[in-house]
């Protein structure tokens, strides 16, 4: 969806740093260092909190069911005792739905990104490193996959295979594989002919060893920080699939599906659609900020 091409994201982590002035006071330097740290630790802390909330909390505390409620508890407002994020019109606890929906989002985000990264690298690195006809062929295939509207493919697969979490993972991977493939290829191409690569080859290192020992360590930072954006993007797409009803099958909770059902009672109960929307937004913001901060750090390393 409306997220830039991987190269574009990678090349513009908030632009080049301003040239340092020689007359910067100590306090300013300390403040700058603090904010640099904060840019990494605040989103990371938030993500850890979210993961804790989604995966650990329901094992420790007994939450209300995310699928069943009693109509008697219906339409609770925010901060109702026992339902601090309220309930929907049939009395299902909103917070509980957020927690279980979040599990699904994170699981799918991680799985799709991992699949995209592994298969994408398996295609992109050899293509970029070897060049020639293999590269042309693989690049064309990636081009086709990228020109194919991702959503359509995902929907068609979900529709053909039936909605389930595993099918959704495969459907969304169709999008993440070419994205990572193209990025892996571009970064491999960028390092392939650097002098130290030539030096390594002349020192006798050959074939797969070059890829494993020289290429991968040098392109990994870019790929890893992009993978955080990838998780965010997947969570967005997953939400869209759920919203359209092609994602997680119904009684199970998911953020996108919460948005879809909340849309119907938007005028009376705006919080029911706002809460999952905000969770979706803030989670992705945190992922993107963390990715940006990592890139900033590794870029200087």
């Amino acid at each position: 969806m409306a997220v830039p091409t991987p190269d574009a994201v990678l090349l513009t982590p908030g632009g080049p740093p301003a040239l340092p002035s020689l007359l910067v006071s100590d306090r300013r330097i300390r403040a700058q260092r603090f904010w640099r740290g904060a840019r990494l630790w605040i989103p990371l802390g938030f993500l850890i909190l979210m993961l804790f909330m989604c995966f650990v909390l329901p094992r420790v505390v007994t939450l209300p069911s995310p699928t069943n409620g009693t109509i008697l508890d219906g339409n609770d407002a925010l901060f109702t005792p026992g339902h601090w994020l309220g309930t929907n019109n049939v009395g299902v606890d909103t917070f509980s739905q957020i927690v279980y929906g979040g599990q699904v989002s994170f699981e799918i985000g991680a799985a799709v990104t991992a699949i995209g990264m592994i298969i994408g690298c398996a295609i992109g690195i050899p293509a970029g490193y070897l060049g020639g006809w293999a590269d042309s062929l693989l690049s064309r295939i990636l081009d086709v996959l990228l020109a194919f509207p991702a959503l359509v493919l995902a929907l068609a697969i979900a529709e053909g295979l039936g909605p389930s979490e595993v099918h959704e993972i495969w459907a969304l991977s169709v999008f993440s594989i070419p994205t990572f493939g193209r990025l892996a290829r571009a970064s491999t191409l960028a390092v392939r002919d650097l002098p130290f690569m030539t030096a390594a080859r002349l020192s006798g290192t050959r074939g797969w060893r070059i890829i494993v020992r020289h290429v991968i360590p040098n392109i990994a930072p870019g790929l890893v920080s992009f993978s955080l954006l990838g998780v965010g993007l997947t969570i967005i797409l997953e939400g869209a699939l759920d919203y359209l009803g092609w994602g997680i099958p119904l009684p199970e909770a998911s953020w996108g599906q919460m948005i879809a059902s909340g849309q119907n009672i938007m005028s009376a109960q705006p919080q029911y659609v706002l809460v999952p929307s905000l969770f979706l937004l803030v989670t992705v913001v945190a992922l993107n900020m963390f990715g940006d901060a990592l890139r900033e750090r590794w870029g200087e390393a």
Binding site: A2, V3, V273, S277, L278, D292
Partner: peptide, 23 residues
């Protein structure tokens, strides 16, 4: 722009509707 970069059109749409259409 960091928020915009992370926002799906779906979420933006929902928020815009609630603010400018419903409210």
């Amino acid at each position: 722009s960091m928020i915009g970069l992370s926002a799906s059109p779906l979420v933006v749409g929902i928020i815009l509707v609630i603010v400018f259409a419903v409210q």
